[in-house]
Design a protein around this nucleic acid. Structure first.
Length: 425
RNA sequence: GGAGGGAUGGCCGAGCGGUUGAAGGCGGUGGUCUUGAAAACCACUGACGGGGUGACUCGUCCGGGGGUUCGAAUCCCUCUCCCUCCGCCA
């Protein structure tokens, strides 16, 4: 959510930011609504002030045993008017709020302006493409041939876009998660968190999934609760501190969480239908930071480096791109995507997305912090990034480490987590 | 699932329908005293939003929402969460 004051005083800045995001939202309707809200509020607050004073007089009179029926009669009228105005104010405020909840974040000034993913800019590259003296196979065929991935049975028990991991594959998934968590908690200073993967509507609204993107989510039916499956651990972990005021000395707070993620993948029919690149359920290690506003862009660089470190240790070739204004997510002010090389597709695919949401989510979720010595509290910045998407890391390992005989070599760093084996197949 | 009990400021804990934003205590901050510290004593100490350069001022908030009333922390309804007992269960 954007700062109401920013919209009131610098609507042009917001309108400009929206334009860069290819949004055609018109702020005029908002300005009108907000002016109405403020005018009603001014009137009703004056009336309330009068009512409070008169109420005190009634109390005084009653205590003195005097008659106050005249006063009470006057108050009755005032009170009716207040009720009416309060109701109007609530309606208009709800309208203002609903509108605010649909506005995306304003891009940071360092973000390249562009229309879509073709305008993203290359930040860096690491490693080299592996060379094969044979035609590399894709992870789907490798996984099936090595009896690790079973799509047919997954389709039987659940449907399309699900997979069963068996034997070495299940072990590899678990090994990758443990490997990532150990590095982030042991070397990068993160605190591991295991949150609920089912959350309520308020939580989904806090990070920005709702009210606009409900079609991307799985909701739970057959219960009178308003429950949703999380699309990323960013949702429960960022909301961990919703409705709280943190001390400045608490910051930065850094959490990592390994959770399943659920996405309906509405509107992606026909995309990545083969294999486990795009699933309804996948596992991810997520990194989440709460920082002071002045520290958040330094923290974004660190966050990106933490995610990159995993790929370096696994020896996987990747590149980093800065997302342009037109390609960024709803809540982000700036985003780096880390893309890993996939030989079968002869291209780079997203394996991590690291974003600084600035105070956008903090304002929605009412996460505050109090600068040391300050009277007023402020809004911390929140950041999140994958570190990494485990399923896609699984894919990258299979494809990049495959051998001519159809076997797959286990990267050195991962062997302790795989019971010491150095090869699958 | 059944029965009962709760939710008040950073924490504990009072609170007759009428100067109660809320007693008291703890904690915190400042001060007095002291060589220093502790103790003791004194003062200050909630959040959010609006207005004013400022001293300041107005409004809202006692788990959430709704209702009764001139007036609600206090009465009624409802929801959520927590606790105790029974049942079921990993």
């Amino acid at each position: 959510m954007l700062d109401l004051k920013l919209l009131q005083k610098h609507g042009d800045v917001v309108q400009d930011g929206l334009a860069k995001r290819n949004s055609d939202i018109d702020l005029a309707r908002f300005q009108e609504l907000d002016a109405k809200r403020r005018s009603i509020l001014g009137e009703v607050e004056t009336l309330k002030s009068e009512r409070n004073k008169a109420s005190g007089l009634v109390a005084k009179a009653k205590r003195a045993g005097e008659d106050a029926s005249d006063l009470i009669a006057t108050l009755s009228t005032t009170s009716d008017r207040i009720k009416e105005l309060d109701k109007q104010a609530a309606e208009v405020s709800a309208g203002v709020n609903d509108f605010l909840l649909t506005l995306p974040n304003v891009p940071h000034e360092s973000v390249p302006v562009g229309k879509d993913e073709n305008d993203n800019t290359l930040l860096s590259m690491w490693g080299d493409k592996p060379e094969f003296d044979f035609e590399p196979r894709d992870h789907h065929d490798l996984g099936v041939a090595l009896d690790g991935l079973d799509f047919e049975r997954a389709a039987k028990i659940a449907g399309a876009r699900f997979a069963v991991y068996k034997g070495w594959a299940a072990r590899l998934e678990r090994a990758l998660a443990a490997f990532m968590l150990d590095i982030h908690t042991g070397e990068h200073g993160y605190t591991e968190v295991m949150p609920p993967v089912i959350v309520n509507r308020q939580t989904m609204t806090g990070t920005g999934q709702l009210p606009k993107f409900g079609e991307d989510l799985f909701g739970l039916t057959g219960t009178d609760k308003d429950y949703f499956l999380i699309p990323t651990a960013e949702v429960p972990v960022t909301n961990l501190h919703s409705e709280e005021t943190l001390a400045e000395t608490d910051l930065p707070i850094s959490y990592c969480a390994y959770t399943p993620c659920f996405r309906s993948e509405a509107g992606s029919y026909g995309k990545d239908t083969k294999g486990i690149i795009r699933q309804h359920q996948f596992q991810k290690v997520e990194l989440v930071h709460f920082t002071r506003p002045e520290d958040s862009y330094d923290q974004l660089e660190k966050l990106r480096e933490h995610a990159e470190e995993i790929l370096k240790r696994l020896g996987l070739h990747y590149r980093v791109v800065t997302l342009c204004t037109g390609d960024m997510g709803f809540a982000a002010a700036k985003t780096y995507d880390i893309e890993v090389w996939l030989p079968s597709q002869d291209t780079y695919r997203e394996i991590s997305s690291c974003s600084n949401c600035e105070d956008f989510q903090a304002r929605r979720a009412n996460i505050r912090y109090r600068p040391t010595g300050a009277k007023k509290s402020g809004l911390p910045h929140t950041l999140n990034g994958s570190g990494l998407a485990v399923g896609r890391t699984f894919v990258a390992i299979l494809e990049n480490y495959q051998q001519a005989d159809g076997s797959v070599v286990i990267p050195e760093a991962l062997r302790p987590y795989m019971g010491g084996i150095d090869k699958i197949g």
